[in-house]
């Protein structure tokens, strides 16, 4: 394999700095998650913590393809999306620590990251619940004659839920600019797709609503980027929704409490052989986009950023008890 121009990949319209940024974000997500797991073991993080390790290429590829004005809602496995959007690792970590400096002030924790300034309207913890909301965001965009697409990120498990089907029908019926991005990581908690879904390929479910759909290798960040870019154009140009199924895998348990009785070590190893970061790294090196040295520099910077995020989270104050009842209602209440 050779590239025609150093610093570029053949057939990929991304600059070297963009490619390196994608690499950095994938490594950042990986390290952030590994360190979050350590901090969980230390008792600094509690509750549900759903790690994204193994799936980094999906978030990074998809977010890179989005416009800054596009809407995003995700499931509870949301750290990767927040980091890929460029949200500060320290504020993400602080949220996991339940600190006042967290993305949502310690109110949401791992499952409810959000940042209105990025039009990231939140991670949602009720499986499939975000799908009608995404359709509503698409409706707002269309109603207001905006060119924003609403991107909905969800798992394979969500496709068996009624909310999924209601949302797809609405989006197709009203030709809403919604990109349905399904991360098929082969399991919903401990239940394999084959045990939960009559149709094994998630993207085929979209045909019931006449929504164009395709599958993509979710371990290949550039493939995810390319298909997302195309899908977003489709939606943006008034053609209605689009459906992408990204085939991927989570290396870790569903959450920190997972006994992992439902899959074999061999299966996990098999998937690890197609690790999204390793694959991308190899590609960047093979095409002389970057040197080992350049990538190592990025790795070290990520290491430092994650360590700093932990320090920041640790040293940050807890939420002020006086704020406990703030933000239940936006308008005043005077009766008691």
């Amino acid at each position: 394999m050779t590239s025609t121009v150093d610093g570029q990949l053949p057939g990929v319209a991304l600059t070297k700095s963009e490619l390196l940024e994608m690499y950095r974000l994938m490594v950042l997500i990986r390290r952030f998650e590994e360190v979050a797991a350590e901090q969980y073991a230390l008792g600094k993080i509690a509750g549900f913590l759903h790690l994204y390790i193994g799936e980094e290429a999906v978030a990074v590829g998809a977010i890179r393809a989005m416009d800054p004005e596009d809407h995003l809602v995700t499931h509870y496995r949301d750290h990767g999306y927040a980091l890929a959007l460029g949200l500060e690792p320290r504020r993400c970590m602080a949220e996991l620590f339940g600190k006042a400096t967290g993305l949502v002030g310690g109110r949401g924790g791992s499952m409810h990251f959000a940042d209105a300034s990025k039009h990231f309207w939140g991670g949602y913890a009720i499986v499939a619940g975000l799908l009608p909301i995404a359709a509503g965001l698409g409706l707002a965009s269309k109603y207001l004659n905006q060119r924003r697409v609403a991107v909905a990120v969800f798992g394979d498990g969500a496709t068996n839920n009624g909310a999924f089907h209601e949302a797809l029908n609405f989006a197709a019926l009203w030709k809403l600019p919604v990109l349905f991005l399904c991360e098929n990581n082969q399991y919903g908690m401990g239940t394999a797709v084959s045990h939960a879904s009559a149709v094994r390929e998630m993207y085929r479910k979209a045909c019931a609503y006449d929504i164009p759909a395709e599958q993509v290798d979710g371990q290949d960040v550039l493939a995810v980027y390319e298909v997302t870019k195309r899908a977003l154009e489709h939606c943006r140009n008034g053609n209605g929704p689009y459906f992408i199924e990204a085939l991927t895998y989570r290396y870790r348990g569903h959450s920190m409490a997972d006994p992992e009785t439902y899959r074999s070590k061999e299966e996990v190893e098999e998937w690890r052989r197609r690790d999204p970061i390793v694959l991308f790294r190899q590609k960047l090196l093979a095409h002389n986009v970057a040197t080992e040295e350049e990538l190592a520099t990025l790795d070290r910077a990520v290491e430092e950023a994650v360590a700093e995020a932990v320090r920041f989270a640790d040293e940050s104050p807890e939420p002020d008890p006086a704020t406990l009842t703030q933000y239940v209602y936006a308008d005043p209440i005077t009766v008691h």
């Binding site: 309207w121 909301i133 609403a150 209601e166």
Partner: peptide
């Protein structure tokens, strides 16, 4: 029909689209 929208019989979706539309800047 843009402002008076007949929906499918899908109550969860109706409210959920309302939630998304409201976040997106409308007054459903």
């Amino acid at each position: 029909p843009e402002r008076v929208r007949d929906t499918p019989i899908a109550e969860l979706g109706i409210v959920g689209l309302g939630v998304g539309a409201a976040i997106g800047g409308l007054r459903p």
